[in-house]
Design a binder for these strands. Structure first.
Lengths: 256, 256
DNA sequence: GGTCGGATGATTGTGTACAATATCCTTCGC
DNA sequence: GCGAAGGATATTGTACACAATCATCCGACC
């Protein structure tokens, strides 16, 4: 399973800008990208020693990176049993999407208020890159860039706590998309992203929020959360045999 | 400055239930409590070696605990320069309160929908404890318990990402209260908490949300964020001399 | 006299060794 | 043949030692 990760020492790659230069940022970014681009499947065990050897650093660094990833929810850290790539359940996915609608709405409103011309320009640039990825057939990078678009939008909202939360939500959303996406391609249709930028640029909060909410609808419409293929939760698999059934009860804060 | 922390090995104290028993949880909880109860003032340097000696563990454990605290925003981790207790600026406080209104609204709606009788009972119990603390004059523990009330409410909402975010927001809010609170006492008036539980118990979402929003109003009304006493930001201190002034522009999502 | 520069001390960053725990396989008993 | 108990192996948890970096202080130079 080691070949799925980039060898090492190539920090000029797509992996996040490696701002402060400290080693664990590089490791963090690489594993992060690998998970989001689905080069690491959900449930894969992340051995500290193996990762350390791959990246040429000690377990100390790996451990820190895994800790950060765990805090963001893309890695599950089981005490004394090591780390695995997270595999969100359907219920967890629902909770994440609920939170995401909430945050995206607020971010959109704030972005309409605070986004600078420069930031809007950067957003347009990101949409172009995203489009290029999908047309190139690089699905993994497309999912990742699509997520980074939403993260960039959060930065334009100028609210640090929301940015931090959004980072966690976007990461997990990407994981969910990678896991539950049904057949149809063209995920975050870049067209929607572009129209969203238009609305923000014209400072039309109402329209921007509407577009964002529809965008969210389209994302989870493409997922088949209702009939998840395989599950490792025995109770969920055999739930139809149990007497105390739980209703799915889709709860989306669209009316809020 | 070492005497401000509890000696060690007293994990049956008020510090969080110490669930998994691992050492760093204990250390984390103790430092966390110390900060929230204002036994550690904002800006205080948190030396790894000193903390390690106090708690009788190695720097490895301390480092992990500090890392977690930094992720929650109550500790600032400066590369190569050590950790300090966070001291949120006025602008950061505003952003935190904005996010908190957003989250508290959603949590209240979800709690009305999902809170069990048992959870409501636990909430009432917490209000009693909180009340006891304030009447006993233990201001620090009062602030902390008041925060834990809001955290417990988040758990009743049954949305894991929101709980996690709320934990971070509540921690930082406590820090802000400890830092900016103006004269008047009786912070989170327990009465408001009680009425909130009533509304949730009667499944009256509209009233519960209204009470929660008023509760938020009362909290930041008690803070003097507009005329912060001292600041370490020179630009902020002498902003009236600068030509390009920034308007404060209070932005609260009350109309959302 | 003030400021720049270098040496010194302290503190954090990283690697590694050892201990504790979980997992897996073998073996024993039923 | 199946299940359970025990040990062997591998992996994580913790402590510690060394390297790198930063803050401070003192002296020299302008």
């Amino acid at each position: 399973m080691n070949e799925q990760l980039q060898p090492l020492k190539k920090q000029s790659r797509t992996a996040k800008s490696t701002r402060s230069g400290t080693q664990d940022d590089v490791v963090y970014a690489h594993i992060f990208d690998a998970i989001l681009e689905q080069r690491l499947a959900p449930g894969t065990k992340l051995s500290e020693e193996a990762l350390g050897e791959i990246f040429g650093v000690s377990r100390t660094i790996i451990r820190r990176a895994l800790s950060r990833l765990a805090h963001e929810g893309v890695v599950l850290l089981r005490p004394n049993r090591g780390a695995v790539v997270a595999s969100p359940s359907v219920e967890e996915a629902r909770q994440i999407f609920y939170a995401r609608r909430l945050v995206e709405r607020a971010i959109t409103e704030l972005a309409v208020e605070h986004a600078t011309a420069e930031q809007l320009q950067e957003l347009r640039q990101m949409v172009l890159e995203e489009q290029a990825c999908f047309s190139r057939g690089d699905r993994g990078a497309g999912i990742r860039l699509s997520g980074e678009f939403h993260l960039k939008l959060a930065e334009a909202a100028k609210n640090a706590p929301l940015v931090s939360f959004q980072r966690s939500l976007v990461s997990q959303t990407s994981l969910i998309i990678a896991q539950y996406e049904s057949g149809s391609r063209s995920h975050c249709s870049f067209d929607e992203h572009n129209r969203l930028i238009d609305a923000i640029e014209s400072r039309d909060a109402e329209r921007a929020v509407m577009l964002m909410m529809h965008h969210m609808d389209h994302i989870d419409d493409k997922l088949n959360l209702d009939e998840s293929g395989a599950s490792d939760d025995l109770h969920a698999v055999f739930s139809h045999l149990l007497q105390t059934k739980k209703k799915p009860g889709r709860s989306s804060p669209r009316s809020a």
